[in-house]
Nucleic acid binder design. Structure first.
Lengths: 261, 261
DNA sequence: ACCGTCGGTTCAAATATCAAACCGAAGGCT
DNA sequence: AGCCTTCGGTTTGATATTTGAACCGACGGT
């Protein structure tokens, strides 16, 4: 692994639940030498990607990220453009809606919107990464990736997260094939017990499936009528976001979704 | 310079006016070997900090930046929290308002808001960096930095940008001292001819001056009455943003601003 | 068919990383 | 107070990685 990767890996240790990390902690977390870790952090800090909160204190993500992200959004409007649709989806479905993006080879939640229809809801603040095999978003995205990518994902170890997690690559391939045939994906408690979710793929201006849009609800609320309603709302919202992104649906999906509307 | 710095420097070559860069171009721009540049880009791409638009095509900033920026904003609300105040400032002043942040050792514009009061306005899209010595924001920030930082900035070469740019370190020190005494900074055509701007420092929760708030107008519109109005609006908005950020004003500035209100 | 340039790859020579030990300062515990 | 641990940060010399120049094959223009 290259030096740059080591440095960039450090950034991923900062999460919502662990926003501040000291040098020694980070060295332990990353299994890097403390001296190396220090040098990497210093270089990251020189560019404003991390900053130190005090003098001789912990590190946190830095302000340059805001600027780079704003630049990215200016060129490829992604998050801001999708937010209104995401909020409408949460409102219509009465459940938690979230949007995930494929970042290199991991799927990460980027934005979410809650409904106030129920006091019990699926929260998204804690999720850092959505496993492909155990979430509806993951399956939706995987169904529209090149074979090599899908194979690479399915060939690495697939952790059991709940007792409902499907981890058999062959079964998963079949489920993914099914997703292509239906135009949406579904997961029942594969990521978190009691959470039932449905997702549709999103396509960007390059024609790639670069993310997924999902609605997650408590399993107990997922009646047949509710599933129909969510599927309908997802397809509508998915079409909108793909359009806003300047993307276009694969022909078969376009047909499927048109019929569902 | 370390490997990581070289990689991170690459990110700064992407701008609003040059959002897509090919490998060879970037190698030339950065004066890096093409092989090195390629490897660095590949590592950046593996983490989603850049991405390739097609196959064997140009690179652009990647989606992971959105996620990291969202994480930073979640921990240290900066941009989103200041936007409403910034917009109100543009409205009140009838001119372009902008907010800049100190990122490591450079001052960069982070957000701006326009007024529709005049069809001629100062635009901010193109500015990538605000030179400390030639902008009101730069002077405002510099006035509240540790001596070592100020000295480091003033000791490096200070480019002439217009025929009004002040580049004499001694004179600049005096102007900075003046800024501390007034509680705001002013610049007349030092960055761009015909642009007259005023700025106040902003303070974060760590007590540092980590940015500046400015109003920039065509020099011809900067009447004495207008300057008074803008100074008043800036002080009000600056107080608000510092408060929102959980920061507090240095005692002398708090007094100055209270008297001005 | 030629030329220049593109993105990407290869292999000695130069440079950065590693592990371990060390430093002064700060905080907890007895 | 005194002791002990941990903190952020620095140094060392052996080792592994990065570097840079030349080199591909492919593409587009002439």
């Amino acid at each position: 692994m290259g030096t740059v990767s080591k440095a960039l890996d450090l950034l991923d240790y900062f999460t919502r639940s662990r926003p501040l990390i000291g040098l020694s902690d980070l060295a332990r977390l990353s299994a890097l030498n403390k001296a190396t870790c220090f040098r990497l952090l210093t270089e990251l800090a020189d560019h404003g990607l991390v900053e130190q909160v005090g003098i001789g204190r912990e590190y946190r993500l830095g302000p340059s990220l805001l600027r780079l992200a704003a630049l990215r959004e200016a060129q490829v409007p992604t998050r801001e453009a999708a937010m209104p649709v995401l909020q409408a989806l949460a409102l219509q479905s009465g459940e938690t809606a979230h949007l995930s993006l494929l970042m290199a080879d991991v799927l990460r939640p980027l934005a979410h919107a809650y409904s106030s229809a129920h006091v019990t809801k699926v929260t998204m603040e804690d999720a850092e990464e959505l496993p492909f095999h155990a979430t509806s978003s993951g399956l939706a995205v995987l169904a529209f990736q090149p074979d090599a990518f899908r194979d690479a994902i399915l060939n690495r170890p697939l952790p059991h997260l709940t007792h409902h997690t499907e981890t058999n690559p062959t079964t998963l391939r079949a489920r993914i094939q099914e997703v292509r045939g239906l135009g949406y994906a579904e997961s029942r408690g594969g990521f978190e017990s009691d959470v039932h979710s449905m997702a549709v793929p999103l396509f960007d201006a390059l024609g790639r499936c670069s993310g997924a849009l999902a609605v997650a609800a408590l399993g107990s609320r997922m009646t047949e009528a509710q599933r129909r309603l969510i599927r309908f709302a997802l397809i509508k919202a998915g079409t909108e976001i793909t359009t806003i992104w300047g993307g276009s649906l694969p022909a078969d999906i376009a047909t499927l979704w048109r019929l569902a509307a």
